[in-house]
Computed example of a mutant assay.
Amino acid sequence: MDVELTCYLSGEIHTAWRDEIEAAVDELDLPVDLTGPVTDHAASDDCGVTILGAEQNAFWKDHKGAKLNAIRTRTLIGEADLVVIRFGDKYKQWNAAFDAGYAAAQGTPYIVMHGAEHAHALKEVDAAAFAVCETVEQVVAMLRYICRGELVRPTPSLSVVR
């Protein structure tokens, strides 16, 4: 019997890791509905001032955008059965750490994905996670196991997450 999941994909927006997970979920026909933040960086940054009006001070510009993005993020994490949080190596993803804390506070299980170089910096985030991994293939193998009970060893591919 398949377990159906809604999975929120949080974190780093500058690589194609979400697309890779989506392609694998589609290829394996897993019963997983993927959701996530707005990944168009400019749209995410400018949504507040575009919709609500310009701001002279950068703080208030960011404040407006953060509040609008939080409506989406909190709603979708609240509806999720599972959250996957990717920490990339190029930028500090403070929002991803916040999403991990929010998921934990809501009692929503989450998986953290990051390289070994971030293990120390993310030790508290990792400690509350249900799993910590480094690759898209590992995430897909976990989704396959959770949904179908099928145990497979992840195999390397052309994943951007290494």
Results as ranks from 00 to 15, higher is better:
residue 113 M to V: 15
residue 53 G to A: 12
residue 139 V to M: 07
residue 11 G to N: 06
residue 110 Y to R: 06
residue 122 L to F: 01
residue 69 N to R: 12
residue 99 D to K: 04
residue 161 V to E: 04
residue 37 P to N: 12
residue 90 K to F: 00
residue 57 N to E: 12
residue 134 E to R: 01
residue 145 Y to N: 09
residue 106 Q to W: 00
residue 77 I to C: 01
residue 50 T to S: 10
residue 153 R to P: 07
residue 147 C to E: 04
residue 144 R to V: 05
residue 147 C to T: 14
residue 34 L to I: 15
residue 82 L to S: 01
residue 114 H to N: 10
residue 68 L to R: 11
residue 54 A to V: 11
residue 49 V to N: 05
residue 79 E to L: 13
residue 21 I to W: 05
residue 73 T to F: 00
residue 66 A to L: 09
residue 33 D to G: 04
residue 137 E to Q: 14
residue 110 Y to E: 04
residue 95 N to F: 04
residue 109 P to S: 08
residue 38 V to G: 01
residue 135 T to K: 05
residue 98 F to W: 13
residue 7 C to S: 08
residue 7 C to E: 01
residue 146 I to W: 07
residue 99 D to C: 05
residue 39 T to F: 03
residue 160 V to H: 03
residue 149 G to Q: 07
residue 71 I to W: 06
residue 54 A to E: 15
residue 80 A to W: 02
residue 88 G to C: 10
residue 119 A to V: 14
residue 127 A to H: 13
residue 116 A to G: 11
residue 7 C to A: 15
residue 114 H to A: 10
residue 43 A to N: 00
residue 89 D to G: 14
residue 95 N to L: 04
residue 5 L to F: 10
residue 112 V to W: 02
residue 60 W to M: 06
residue 108 T to C: 14
residue 130 F to D: 08
residue 31 P to W: 03
residue 76 L to W: 00
residue 31 P to I: 07
residue 91 Y to H: 13
residue 6 T to M: 14
residue 12 E to K: 02
residue 65 G to N: 10
residue 152 V to L: 11
residue 95 N to R: 01
residue 15 T to C: 02
residue 13 I to N: 06
residue 113 M to D: 02
residue 99 D to M: 05
residue 24 A to R: 03
residue 29 D to C: 08
residue 162 R to I: 05
residue 130 F to V: 15
residue 33 D to K: 14
residue 116 A to W: 02
residue 39 T to P: 02
residue 53 G to C: 14
residue 131 A to R: 07
residue 124 E to H: 15
residue 7 C to N: 00
residue 74 R to H: 15
residue 114 H to V: 06
residue 130 F to P: 00
residue 8 Y to F: 14
residue 10 S to R: 00
residue 123 K to V: 03
residue 149 G to R: 00
residue 148 R to G: 08
residue 4 E to N: 06
residue 106 Q to L: 13
residue 98 F to K: 07
residue 118 H to K: 06
residue 134 E to Q: 15
residue 114 H to K: 05
residue 5 L to H: 09
residue 5 L to I: 09
residue 151 L to A: 15
residue 102 Y to V: 05
residue 150 E to F: 12
residue 143 L to C: 04
residue 56 Q to V: 11
residue 121 A to M: 15
residue 129 A to K: 06
residue 35 T to N: 10
residue 107 G to Y: 12
residue 141 A to G: 08
residue 64 K to R: 15
residue 101 G to P: 01
residue 32 V to E: 03
residue 77 I to P: 01
residue 2 D to L: 13
residue 66 A to C: 06
residue 27 E to N: 11
residue 52 L to G: 04
residue 57 N to S: 14
residue 72 R to K: 15
residue 150 E to C: 07
residue 53 G to K: 15
residue 53 G to L: 13
residue 6 T to G: 07
residue 160 V to T: 14
residue 133 C to H: 10
residue 161 V to N: 00
residue 6 T to L: 10
residue 59 F to L: 09
residue 131 A to M: 11
residue 47 C to E: 07
residue 110 Y to S: 04
residue 103 A to Y: 05
